[in-house]
Nucleic acid binder design. Structure first.
Length: 399
DNA sequence: TCTGGGGTCCTAGGACCC
DNA sequence: TCTGGGGTCCTAGGACCC
């Protein structure tokens, strides 16, 4: 007899908001989770957006990823707090460490979500009992709540954790799919976003159950073969993907900057391109990687994006080389008249930097470029150290 | 009210080779 | 002289996730 497969999906409730609340409470402030509140970028920047909203704020219509201005209009008394990514990283580590105690077969899905396969770690306990223990341990030790979804595969566990929030455990076993999952709107299904939802609804497909009952052929016509097959499997609660414990290697590194207003100033755009090139190349070097494909993308006022990518003859981590390619491509992409909202740069086709061949014909300037990068990296790590030190001092005041 | 930043994967069309 | 089909690689764009 094959053993029962049991997967948990653990999801921190309004993660950035909860974590900020814990941080503020440590310095004696009241619990912002109980107020209409939200975490955002710079609250004074009209372009910043809501990263996480409290449950009272959500009840007033505040949504994640909407502009701060819009949220303030819906909810004028909204308490806005700027996010602290350093702190979020620590909260995430603490959360993952506790989950790992319950099963080492753990896949981190994002900063605030993970799957664990507890099939072999249940002992005499019932899954529900164990999930409640895990949820309570996180609450007690770390001060924030999670939702846990339990199912026989990752999809069902993930769908279940999204049921009523916060601080809840839900099951979604195969025999519960018709009752608990089929009445939900198509948008609730994993990988069904806004565009797919529109297509489905236009064709009278409103619920997950409607998808599940569709003939494959009709679905293929709407969303393409591969996606259609996957949607049909998901809508029927089937998913045989394993909990992946190995962290996959990065396939690309990118950075982008949205200007405080749309600009067509060539020098300002070039400066932005330079800045993102420095960031991307620095991250490449820190990861000991080199890239052999560079891409540039620009976003216009209407949010349309165009991009160019190009392979380079030799994999590189040198800022000047990457910037040079990017500048050429930007020249082809942009007429230097239309104002731009955003400029971005990415690298891909990454390889480890161990086996680099030295070319006899290497550009003699390359030595200077590398020295410039070394200085940049050193300066960056000095700043990083100083920042961490200041951070520690602030967090642990001397007695 | 005026929409961030960082990723992954898929598709379609063109070039090129056999 | 004209016409195949398959495979691979590359590029551009789009959809989705958190």
């Amino acid at each position: 007899m094959s053993r029962r497969r049991v997967i948990f999906h653990i999801d921190v409730n309004s993660a950035f908001l909860s974590w900020t609340a814990v941080q503020l409470m440590q310095s004696g402030r009241s619990d912002i989770r109980l107020l209409p509140s939200a975490v955002s970028g710079d609250p004074d920047d009209r372009r910043s957006i809501i990263t996480a909203a409290s449950i009272p704020a959500k009840k007033l219509g505040v949504k994640t990823a909407e502009p701060v201005g819009m949220a303030l209009r819906k909810c004028p008394g909204l308490v806005l707090v700027r996010g602290d990514w350093e702190w979020y990283g620590r909260c995430s580590e603490g959360f993952i460490d506790i989950c790992r105690k319950y099963s080492p077969v753990l896949q981190q899905f994002s900063i605030d979500e993970c799957f664990i396969d507890i099939s072999d770690y249940l002992m005499e306990q019932e899954p529900l009992e164990m999930a409640v223990m895990l949820k309570e341990e996180i609450k007690e030790k770390l001060g924030f709540t999670v939702n846990i979804g339990i199912g026989s595969n990752k999809l069902l566990a993930k769908m279940a954790s999204d049921f009523e929030k916060p601080d809840k455990v839900h099951t979604l076993w195969e025999h519960e799919v018709q009752e608990k999952m089929w009445p939900l709107g198509v948008r609730e299904l994993l990988w069904v976003g806004k565009k797919t939802e529109e297509k489905l609804i236009m064709n009278g497909i409103k619920t997950i159950g409607d998808i599940a009952r569709m003939p494959l052929g009709a679905l293929v016509g709407l969303v393409g073969k591969k996606f259609a097959c996957q949607l049909l499997e998901y809508a029927n609660g089937r998913d045989d993907s394993p909990v992946e414990t190995v962290v996959p290697e990065a396939k690309s590194i990118s950075a982008e900057r949205t200007m405080s207003r749309d600009i067509a100033d060539e020098r300002a755009i070039d400066k932005t391109l330079f800045n993102v090139a420095c960031v991307v190349a620095h991250r490449l070097r820190r990861a000991r990687l080199r890239a052999s494909c560079v891409s540039v993308f620009i976003k216009y006022k209407d949010f349309s994006v165009v991009q160019r990518q190009r392979q380079i003859s030799q994999a590189t981590d040198v800022t000047a080389v990457i910037l040079n390619e990017a500048r050429c491509m930007l020249n082809e992409l942009w007429d230097k008249k239309t104002p731009l909202r955003q400029v971005g740069l990415g690298v891909s086709k990454l390889t480890h930097d161990v086996a680099v061949q030295l070319s006899l014909f290497e550009d003699p300037k390359m030595g200077y470029y590398r020295e410039w990068d070394r200085n940049y990296d050193e300066e960056k790590s000095r700043k990083e150290d100083a920042r961490l030190l200041a951070y520690e001092r602030r967090r642990t005041p001397e007695k």
